[in-house]
Simulated assay, not measured.
Amino acid sequence: MGQLIAKLMRIFGSQEHKVIIVGLDNAGKTTILYQFLINEVVHTCSTIGSNAEEIALQKTWFLMWDLGGQEALLLLAPSGSSWDIYYSSTEFVILVIYSTDRNRNHPGAELCKMLAHEALQEASVLIFANKQDVKDSMNIVEISQFLTLSATKDHPWHIQGCCALTGEGLPAGLQWMQSQTTTN
Rank of each mutant, 00 (worst) to 15 (best):
R102G: 00
D25L: 04
C162P: 01
F128C: 06
L111C: 09
E142I: 04
K135M: 05
I127Q: 01
A72N: 10
H155I: 08
Q132T: 03
G173F: 11
I5V: 02
Q15C: 03
E142A: 06
A123V: 08
G2D: 08
N130P: 06
G80H: 08
S179Y: 07
T60D: 02
A151Q: 14
N105D: 03
S82Y: 15
P171K: 14
Y87R: 14
Q70W: 02
L63S: 07
E16F: 10
S137V: 03
F146D: 00
Q58H: 14
T44K: 04
I143M: 00
A172H: 08
I97V: 09
T183Q: 14
L74P: 00
K131D: 01
G69V: 04
N39P: 02
S124E: 04
I143V: 09
T148I: 08
I127Y: 01
I97K: 04
G108Q: 06
A27C: 13
L95Y: 09
I20H: 11
S46V: 14
T182K: 12
C163D: 03
C162R: 03
I5P: 00
K18G: 05
A6T: 12
M64T: 12
C45R: 06
A27P: 03
E91I: 10
M138Y: 06
S150V: 15
Y98N: 14
I55L: 12
D133G: 06
A109W: 05
A164W: 08
C163T: 14
A72T: 13
A52Y: 10
E118A: 04
Y86I: 07
E91N: 12
K153P: 00
K113R: 15
A116F: 02
L76F: 06
P78R: 15
G23H: 12
A123L: 03
D66K: 11
R104F: 02
V42P: 13
Q132I: 07
H155Y: 06
Q132M: 11
P107D: 01
C112I: 12
Q70S: 03
E122K: 15
R10K: 14
S88V: 09
N26M: 13
L33Q: 07
A129P: 05
G2Y: 09
S144F: 00
G173Y: 13
A52Q: 13
R104M: 11
G69E: 02
S88F: 14
